[in-house]
């Protein structure tokens, strides 16, 4: 069965099953350390991490699966996925194309999973500490406040009909 078949739902508009790369970092961070509530959450984290680090790959086994229905309607996940897909392609059409977004996400997530393995699980020290070190993204507080204000204003503008 082709990859396309698997990732398309019956309507053909949204992905159904999403295949992704799952490495040993998932077993440790989800099953053993209980740092993530599920493999799905770890996959999303890995995707955003891969994007942030500017690393993506399509050269790995897609050996695990999840479903689009876990993403659809969860704005805390759906918006970042659309945003990194737009940042990656600069194509406005991608905003309305979940299938393309998923394709980009899983490429970033494959690299992100390897970053988790390398910089969290295999690195010396406590895994939670190592992960917190990664999350502590070096962003200026003032810059973050400004950005937040800007996003709130855009939000308010777009909310008006």
């Amino acid at each position: 069965m082709s990859d396309d078949d698997e990732t398309m739902s019956e309507t053909g508009a949204t992905p159904g099953i999403i295949y992704y790369h799952k490495n040993a970092a998932f077993d440790v961070l989800v099953e053993e350390d209980d740092i993530f509530t599920s493999n799905f959450k770890c996959f999303i984290f890995a995707g955003m991490l891969g994007y942030y680090m500017g690393r993506k790959t399509d050269d790995l086994d897609y050996n695990a699966q999840t479903r689009w229905l876990f993403i659809a309607g969860n704005n805390d996940i759906e918006l970042p996925i659309a945003a990194i897909a737009f940042a990656d392609t600069d194509d406005p059409n991608v905003i309305d194309n979940p299938k393309k977004q998923v394709e980009i996400l899983r490429q970033y997530a494959a690299s992100g999973a390897n970053i988790l393995l390398d910089q969290v699980v295999q690195k010396r020290g406590n895994n939670l500490n190592n992960l917190l070190e990664l999350i502590n993204v070096d962003r200026d507080t003032d810059e973050r406040v400004e950005e937040s204000k800007m996003l709130a204003e855009i939000d308010a503008t777009l909310t008006q009909m």
Binding site: Y51, Y52, P80, F86, A87, R139, E147, L151
Partner: peptide, 13 residues
Amino acid sequence: HIPFAMDAIAKLG
């Protein structure tokens, strides 16, 4: 995962 995507979110906004 959100902090990693904030730059992209701002760009999209």
